[in-house]
Amino acid sequence: MASSTARPDVDASAQSGPSVARRLLDSSATLSYDPAKEVDWETPLDKDFHGASPEWSTLFGTAYWDELTEPQRKELTRQEAASVASTGIWFEMILQQLILRDVYAKDPTDDRVQWALTEIADECRHSIMFARGAQKLGAPAYRPHRVAVELGRLFKTTAFGEAAYAAILVAEEVLDVMQRDWMRDERVVPFVRTINNIHVVEESRHMKFAREEMRRNLAKAGRARRYFHAFLIAVAAYVIVTSMVSRKVYANAGLDEKRALAEARANEHHKAMMRSSCAGLMEFLASCRLLTRPALAFYKRAHLI
């Protein structure tokens, strides 16, 4: 985690970027996965398993959850896991474009450019893996709300520097914490645990690079740019997090969508889980002086702080 003193941390990172990229390239060469071979795609779905740790369900801890039968709870977590995967595909497509724009026309012999291309290759495999995983869970192709899709289109076209890499970090940090729980949980269907393990291992390198690139870019950012990007990053975080679980999962799990949505929105347990998952991220953003008052309003609204 970053030092609590922002400026020295940023300056030191700016000098270490290329060596960090080289270490990540070496790590990728040593430990990477081929989901087509590593994940058990052939065994039929065993509906005796959850799709995600029950504690991460948007309804866990509510009166509605207590009324559900065990098969209903398992179907709900499978639909929610598929929704998270579908949202992951949406955002991975955004971040691939952000990264490609960032390295466009730069020196391809530079370690950072080569790592960026490696990361894009990882994300392509992850998107296919998530799509096949959601399909095997018996879920439709969940998509974010139209407004979120259009905001994503605008963001991926205009974001640059620390804003681009911070958005990557926000999305991956939230997924990382929940997926670490899912991959260790024997109540979760085995092929989903494998998918989560692959994603956690490979995304840990992506998050390291995002932090380094943020620090490197912030080293040359003035006050106005820092404040603007702090706000932009917070808005992006809000859109990403609130798009993770589609409202359609409840009807597809056989539940009363209106009631489920109301109880999910008021679920203090789930809000606490989200805040806990983002504690390290918020500490890092604070060290970069990106938790401005306007930004904090969006993080609080998304229950990330």
Rank of each mutant, 00 (worst) to 15 (best):
E67R: 14
V241H: 02
D46V: 05
A29R: 15
A121P: 08
A116R: 00
M274V: 10
G88E: 00
A272P: 01
N197W: 07
A2I: 10
A171D: 01
R225I: 04
A302R: 03
A286S: 13
R112T: 15
F284Q: 07
F60K: 09
V20G: 05
G161V: 07
V103M: 12
T242M: 15
N196S: 05
F228P: 03
K220R: 14
L98E: 01
D122K: 07
K300S: 11
A234F: 06
Q15T: 14
M282N: 05
Y238S: 12
A234Y: 04
A264G: 05
K74F: 02
A253C: 05
H145C: 14
D66E: 14
V113H: 09
S243R: 01
A105C: 14
E203I: 02
V170F: 02
R301D: 14
A230I: 07
A272T: 02
D48R: 15
L218P: 00
A21F: 08
I233Q: 03
V200W: 01
A139E: 01
A85I: 05
T69W: 06
P190L: 05
L304N: 00
H199I: 03
A139I: 05
G138M: 08
M244H: 02
V103P: 02
E123R: 02
E42R: 14
P294T: 12
F298A: 14
L281V: 01
Q135Y: 12
P8H: 10
L25A: 04
H270D: 06
R73E: 02
A219F: 09
A236L: 09
D34N: 15
D111Q: 11
S3L: 12
V189N: 00
R73P: 01
L76P: 00
A166T: 04
M273E: 06
K248A: 08
G222F: 03
T158F: 15
S27C: 12
L285K: 04
Q97I: 11
H145V: 14
R112G: 05
S32P: 03
R132D: 09
I305V: 14
S27R: 13
D40H: 08
V189I: 09
Y299L: 09
A295L: 09
S243G: 10
S13G: 13
R259E: 12
I94C: 05
A221G: 08
A29Q: 15
E70W: 05
Y64S: 13
Y227V: 09
K74P: 01
A52F: 00
G51H: 00
G254F: 04
S3N: 13
L31K: 15
D66H: 12
R101K: 15
Q79P: 01
L232I: 11
A260H: 01
R125V: 07
L290I: 03
